[in-house]
Every structure is written in structure tokens, then in C-alpha cells.
Simulated scan of single mutants.
Amino acid sequence: METSKLLNKIKGKGLSVRKVVEIMNDEYGIKMDISTFYKKLKDVEQFRAYEIRAISSILNLSFDEAGSIFFKELVS
């Protein structure tokens, strides 16, 4: 999880973490409170696939952008 990249994307869209969580709740039906979102930002908990899809949609992230934020590169 690249927390700083995600926060920069949120700020770049003129949004706050609170607003992203509100949109997830209201428009995507994902029931999450802000403290849970912050736990996921800190890697205490993991974002689920449907949450990543919602965040990616809200922030208009490309597949590659979402991958670079939510998934660490695998080394073989």
C-alpha cells in the first residue's frame, strides 16, 4: 500500500479522506467509517477488492495507477 500516493491523488482531486468515505457510503453502498479507512491506510487492515474498485472510480484511477497504489510490486 502506497499511502502517500493515495493521499496525493485524493488531494489532487480536491477531496478529503472524509469526503471519499462519504462517497463510498452514499454512492457505492460501502459502509465504512473514517477510522476504518485510516486503519486501512496504515496497513492495520487491508482494503477489499470492492473498496479498491470504488476508490479507483471516485478518483478516476487507471488500472496501472490503482495497481501502483494498492499492490506492492512482486519480485520473482
Results as ranks from 00 to 15, higher is better:
Leu7Asp: 00
Ile69Cys: 02
Leu6Ser: 03
Glu2Thr: 04
Ile58Pro: 01
Phe37Asn: 05
Val17Ile: 15
Leu7Ile: 13
Thr3Met: 12
Ser4Gly: 01
Asp43Leu: 11
Tyr38Ala: 01
Arg53Asp: 14
Ile58Arg: 02
Gly67Asn: 15
Met1Thr: 10
Ile30Phe: 10
Leu59Trp: 10
Asn25Phe: 12
Asn25Trp: 05
Ser35Ile: 11
Arg18Met: 08
Glu73Phe: 07
Val17Arg: 12
Leu6Tyr: 03
Leu41Lys: 07
Glu22Arg: 12
Asp43Val: 04
Tyr28Ala: 05
Ala49Trp: 01
Asp33Pro: 00
Glu45Asp: 10
Leu7Trp: 00
Met1Gly: 12
Met32His: 05
Leu15Cys: 08
Thr3Arg: 15
Ile34Cys: 08
Lys13Trp: 07
Ser76Leu: 14
Leu61Asn: 02
Ile69Val: 09
Phe70Thr: 05
Ile30Gln: 11
Ile30His: 08
Asp64Arg: 13
Thr3Asn: 09
Ala66Tyr: 01
Asn8Arg: 14
Ala66Arg: 02
Ile52Pro: 02
Lys13Gln: 11
Val21Cys: 08
Glu51Val: 06
Phe47Cys: 09
Lys19Ser: 12
Glu2Tyr: 10
Ala54Met: 06
Ile10Met: 07
Ser35Phe: 10
Lys42His: 13
Met1Ile: 07
Arg48Pro: 00
Ser16Gly: 08
Gly14Phe: 10
Phe71Met: 12
Val17His: 02
Met32Arg: 04
Ala54Asp: 04
Glu65Gly: 06
Tyr38His: 14
Phe71His: 13
Ile69Met: 05
Val20Cys: 06
Thr3Cys: 06
Glu27Thr: 06
Tyr38Ile: 07
Phe37Leu: 11
Leu41His: 02
Thr36Asn: 15
Ala49Asn: 05
Ser35Lys: 15
Lys42Phe: 02
Met32Ile: 15
Ile58Thr: 09
Thr3Asp: 08
Met24Cys: 08
Leu15Asn: 02
Asn8Gln: 15
Met24Asn: 04
Phe63Tyr: 12
Ile23Arg: 08
Tyr28Met: 07
